[in-house]
Amino acid sequence: MAAIAEDGLDRLTMAGLGREVGMSSGHLLYYFRSKDELLLRTLEWSEEQLGVERRQALARQVPVRERLDAFVRLYVPQAPRDPHWTLWLELWNRARSLDDAARDRLLDIELSWHRDLVALLVEGASRGEFRAVDAERIATRVRALLDGFSTHVAMGLPGSDRAHVLAHVADFFDETLSPNDRTG
């Protein structure tokens, strides 16, 4: 993951990666078949690690909004060139060349985040912490918002640092989920 994040997949060679991890390029190709498969499997491994953290954060016995904020903190990159997000950017860049099975694997990862977000929105509404919303619809919008902001953070675009992104997302939640009717 660090090698991909540092140089990008295009500049990474199987021979160079093999030297870094103490394997021959032949062994890497035997296990991964291609750079795309290596990239996807690395992302799946990274997501498994992050999934453990996410499940722990969401299982805490705190208000739903605190868990929602923890979800967002796990989602948004820590800084430009965040290794986890670099994997996502590389895969999104290659998405057109991936086969259907690989795209299905990416969708499975996306849906795990989506299901957790929907569950938080439903729980928050049922407890009166959030107003009643169409949880599927709002979750789709939130993920698009997070993906857009996260891409900017990962790319290091000026004005898109993590703190500002977290503040924007918190404002969005306040405006969208507040149980008080702000329209009247």
Rank of each mutant, 00 (worst) to 15 (best):
A3M: 09
A5H: 06
A5M: 10
D7R: 15
L12K: 10
L12A: 07
G18K: 14
G18E: 12
E20L: 15
H27D: 02
Y31A: 05
K35T: 00
K35S: 04
L38C: 10
L39A: 12
L40G: 05
L43G: 10
S46T: 08
L50T: 10
G51I: 07
R54Y: 03
Q56H: 10
A57N: 09
R60V: 15
R60G: 13
Q61A: 15
Q61G: 06
V64K: 04
R65S: 13
E66S: 15
E66P: 03
E66Y: 07
R67Y: 06
D69V: 12
Q78R: 12
A79R: 13
A79T: 07
R81S: 11
H84N: 06
L91K: 14
D99K: 02
D100F: 07
R103A: 00
E110C: 02
H114D: 03
L120T: 03
L121W: 09
L121Q: 10
E123V: 00
A125G: 06
A125I: 04
A132Q: 14
E136H: 13
T140D: 05
A144H: 09
L145H: 01
D147M: 09
H152Y: 10
V153E: 04
G159R: 01
S160A: 14
A163F: 09
L166S: 04
H168A: 13
A170Y: 01
D171C: 00
F173W: 04
N180H: 08
R182D: 00
